[in-house]
């Protein structure tokens, strides 16, 4: 806080630093406790009985967990890949342009999943997909993939668009001037320059898909548990540190991706 050598600083407000430090500690304390007790020898979530990897072993051996983890991974990979591809194209179409007819509509649609509460989208999808499932008798993962892709698109779109907007447009004009076709301009100039944005978008979409529970809960067919919906189901029973072990794994994966994302988006600016 206030450093005596700096003297009077207008940047200091009384009490703010204490509240801030308390908040930052409070932000991490519950997570820290959760992580600590995932290594507990006993079944308690509050009394420490010694270090053990027992719950991790149990979680890994649990076929339902294996199954849900693989499904989550598959779902997040496919949804984030499709969403990022679509978002990249949309970002190219909607940035660096005069107002063209329909631009507002495209913006509104791309951001629409962000505007509506998840539960509302979830029940709307329940209605429509239930109908399609009865109609076609088809109940594969495709429903989950499409639903996840839809709400991942605006997240993937954000960093890609941000990247494109800081890009010097004259570079692409220069490429065109130097005899590059539209496609070659994209491949040789635009794509390499926007690449950090695309990777950032992909990671963001991946995290968002991996974390989703509400829409998945309503769209999944029988036997299509993802890791989050599996955990939500488990909470109704007696909670053991196994849930903590799974949570810790998810936290770790998320934290790693977010760190990478942070580095990527900070370096570009």
């Amino acid at each position: 806080m206030a450093d005596a050598r700096k003297g009077y600083s207008v940047r200091t407000l009384p009490g703010f630093a204490i509240v801030a430090l308390f908040t930052l500690v409070a932000l991490y304390a519950p997570i820290a406790i959760l992580v600590v007790f995932s290594f507990n020898e006993g079944t308690s979530l509050a009394i420490w009985e010694g270090f053990s990897l027992r719950w991790y072993r149990q979680a890994i051996a649990n076929e339902a967990v294996q199954d849900a983890a693989l499904r989550s991974l598959f779902l997040a990979l496919s949804a984030s890949f499709v969403a990022t591809t679509a978002a990249t194209m949309a970002a190219l179409a909607t940035t660096r342009t005069r107002r063209f007819p329909g631009r507002t509509i495209i913006y509104a649609l791309i951001n629409q999943p962000l505007m509506v509460p998840e539960i509302v989208t979830a029940v709307a999808l329940l209605i429509v997909f239930a109908w399609i499932k009865v109609w076609t008798g088809h109940t594969s993962m495709i429903y989950l993939i499409v639903a996840h892709t839809a709400f991942c698109i605006p997240f993937a779109y954000l960093p890609i668009r941000a990247r494109l907007e800081t890009m010097d447009m004259s570079l692409e004009i220069a490429a065109r001037d130097l005899y590059a076709s539209r496609w070659l301009t994209f491949r040789r100039v635009t794509l390499p320059l926007m690449w950090p944005g695309i990777v950032a978008g992909l990671m963001l979409a991946f995290v968002i898909s991996l974390d989703d529970v509400v829409i998945t809960e309503f769209v999944k067919s029988a036997g299509q548990e993802t890791l989050p919906t599996y955990m939500l189901g488990q909470l109704r029973r007696v909670v053991t540190p196994e849930v903590n072990a799974i949570s810790t794994a998810i936290l770790l994966a998320g934290a790693i991706l977010v760190s990478l994302f942070f580095r990527l988006t900070n370096r570009q600016s």
């Binding site: 679509a86 194209m89 179409a93 791309i110 209605i127 429509v128 892709t149 839809a150």
Partner: peptide, 28 residues
């Protein structure tokens, strides 16, 4: 030509969102 390209590029994202977000809201 520019407008057409922009719409074509946006199309995949729009179709997915209409199918799995905006459209179902109308059905609701």
């Amino acid at each position: 030509a520019d407008n057409r390209n922009r719409w074509l590029l946006s199309l995949p994202a729009l179709v997915i969102i209409v199918c799995a977000a905006a459209g179902p809201l109308l059905v609701m």
